[in-house]
Design a protein around this nucleic acid. Structure first.
Length: 360
DNA sequence: AAGATTTGCAACCGCCTTTCG
DNA sequence: CCGAAAGGCGGTTGCAAATCT
């Protein structure tokens, strides 16, 4: 029964490949094609396991492999796809012509993951991290109503859902109500000058925070948005040949045409354990203004440059590179990429937003 | 200059699914 | 239909190069 044994593991070489071995493998595959990996090493005169040959070929020797630094577009695509697919490196690689799953996995672990962490974004959930709160800027954020907030500031807004922080905020805000001069605009502006991350203060009278004692009863109701292009529908997802979506991805998952992905109310620990995706309109527990907040606007200036749906629907066989000119060429600095990555997660906050709606 | 530490990545390991006898 | 190997995939490791002290 069953097949013949793959190969005798005794006496097979391991470790780095030599140029001679590479040459043998390349020559054999060019002459005969990959064929049966089990018999290939013997036929090619290699003292290697077939599995090792396959890996060497698919990850390194294949002629269509693009090497060199990842372009902005590729990096953006990886982040977008990872927010949907998770660690499905092969599925992500299928959308990046010339890149292997191993290369993408390595790049994620060594570059993107670290950058997201530095920017206060959980690389697993793509949500802001709740353990990186800065109360001072939280308060200055809450006392103002900026037209735009970035992910870091959204994170601080979410901190209002932390009962302990809420209590503290409530105390300070009640002081403010009793003593408006205490936190006057001038004082805030001074604070703003000293803290480049603080909000601009031109709308400070529009974003009234009325911290309430009932806020301590706030359930772990939070939201997050994930980067997503304008439209992904079921048909496109199916067409994308990504049947290997995470098993926890609900069947009604979708992105709105503003590119929003809604994370429903959840236990706080869930926020860091796994991503949640649901259809924005179907979340009965979500206040209307919370949904407003969730309208994500990719802040790359021109979302025509990146259409998530177009990537998701690009057939695997498509050879259209995302950035064909980027091969071997990418002179941008880490700082530029970090800045880009940070701005990538910006949100538009409706001016009519009333924070009371957050207080569940 | 030299040792220590960090970083990047090729390759391996082990598990799961698919294929085949 | 069953069971074992092949194939595929994600996680992890080991080592060389780069950077820091």
């Amino acid at each position: 029964m069953g097949r013949a044994p793959c190969c005798d593991k005794n006496g097979l070489k391991k470790g780095p490949w030599t140029p001679e071995e590479d040459l043998k493998l390349i020559n054999y595959i060019q002459a005969h094609g990959p064929g049966n990996w089990r018999t290939l090493p013997k036929n090619a005169g290699l003292q290697r396991c077939g599995k090792s040959c396959r890996l060497r070929w698919t990850n390194y020797l294949r002629p269509d492999i693009k090497r060199g630094r990842f372009s902005f577009e590729e990096e953006e695509t990886i982040i977008q796809l990872h927010s949907i697919l998770g660690n499905k490196w092969s599925a992500i690689a299928a959308r990046l012509p010339g890149r292997t799953d191993n290369e993408i996995k390595n790049y994620w672990n060594t570059h993107i993951r670290k950058r997201l962490l530095r920017n206060g974004i959980d690389p697993v959930t793509h949500a802001p991290r709740l353990d990186l709160l800065d109360l001072s800027s939280l308060l200055s954020s809450s006392l103002c109503n900026p037209p735009l907030i970035n992910m870091a500031n959204l994170l601080k807004t979410q901190a209002l859902l932390n009962p302990e922080l809420l209590r503290l905020a409530s105390t300070i805000l009640s002081l403010k109500n009793e003593n408006p001069d205490l936190l006057s605009q001038n004082n805030l502006q001074e604070n703003h000058i000293s803290d480049p991350n603080a909000f601009p203060l031109s709308h400070s009278n529009q974003f009234q925070v009325q911290a309430q004692s009932q806020a301590q009863q706030v359930p772990a109701c939070t939201t997050s948005t994930l980067p997503c292009g304008p439209l992904v529908d079921q048909a496109q997802l199916g067409q994308a040949n990504v049947g290997d979506f995470p098993s926890n991805l609900p069947s009604n998952f979708s992105c709105s045409n503003t590119g929003q992905i809604i994370v429903p109310p959840m236990e706080s620990q869930d926020l860091v354990s796994q991503p949640h995706y649901i259809q924005g309109n179907s979340s009965p527990a979500m206040p209307a203004s919370l949904e407003k907040l969730c309208h994500f606007q990719p802040n790359n200036g021109d979302d025509q440059n990146f259409r998530f749906d177009s990537i998701m629907s690009t057939p695997l066989s498509s050879s259209t590179p995302l950035n064909s000119s980027s091969t071997f060429v990418n002179s941008s600095s880490e700082e530029e990429r970090e800045s880009y990555c940070s701005s990538f997660f910006k949100f538009e906050l409706p001016e009519s937003l009333d924070i009371n709606d957050f207080m569940c």
